[in-house]
């Protein structure tokens, strides 16, 4: 996983609440392999007409937001489907950080595991930052994980919370499987004991056969 320390970029304000992952990445694009193939996927059906022409009034189709690296969003951003491809679409566009009053639960986790930092700030603070961005299009903001603050377009700092383990994993670029390998002995011991305590779960005939 790439590490995340601090990220400064043009921020796009998005005023629509409850944007679900199907808007971020419409279902039909899920089939694609992660990576560059996701470049036009982000908000596809908001960004493009059915004939694939750009919707000129969608924010990411306007300069300077075409170069946005941060989105400041509304409540419940990324609710809905668990598809991680929503995060791949953000990454392919160049978005590495999100600021919103709340996020869909699974989406929030998916972001952290792809080194995209979702920051929760108060409703009022998010609204204030979005207003600043509307007033000065193309302004940059900074999401600083080291200091745990968002520096807004006026230079004011807004502290945010993040779980200490998640913060460390992001700073170090440590993926979960590598983290878990540090606890391999505890895991093995746990599983042995668990299987003894609930013997019926692993008894042949109590689970479906594997395929080949």
């Amino acid at each position: 996983m790439d590490s995340f320390i601090s990220w400064t970029a043009i921020a796009a304000p998005l005023d629509i609440p409850s944007i679900d992952t199907n808007q971020i990445c419409p279902t039909r694009f899920n089939k694609r392999a992660k990576g560059a193939a996701f470049d036009t996927v982000l908000f596809h059906d908001l960004r493009f007409t059915p004939q694939d022409a750009e919707q000129p009034n969608f924010i990411l189709n306007r300069d300077p937001y075409r170069r946005a690296g941060i989105i400041v969003a509304e409540r419940n951003f990324g609710c809905g489907s668990s598809r991680e491809s929503a995060v791949y679409a953000l990454l392919a566009f160049g978005i590495r950080a999100l600021v919103a009053p709340s996020f869909g639960e699974i989406f929030y986790t998916n972001c952290l595991k792809n080194s995209v930092l979702p920051v929760v700030l108060d409703d009022a603070i998010c609204a204030r930052i979005r207003n600043q961005l509307h007033d000065s299009a193309g302004a940059e903001i900074t999401v600083d994980l080291q200091r745990q603050v968002v520096r807004d377009a006026t230079g004011a700092d807004h502290p945010f919370d993040i779980h200490p383990l998640r913060r460390q994993c992001l700073l170090d670029g440590l993926d979960d499987v590598s983290l878990t390998e540090r606890y391999a002995d505890a895991s093995a011991a746990f599983e042995r004991q668990y299987r003894q305590e609930f013997p019926w779960l692993t008894k042949p005939g109590n689970y479906p056969p594997g395929s080949s």
Partner: peptide
Amino acid sequence: FGVGASDALHVLAT
């Protein structure tokens, strides 16, 4: 509960 691909990979592996 539901998870994304990274957590699914983690469960597959561990």
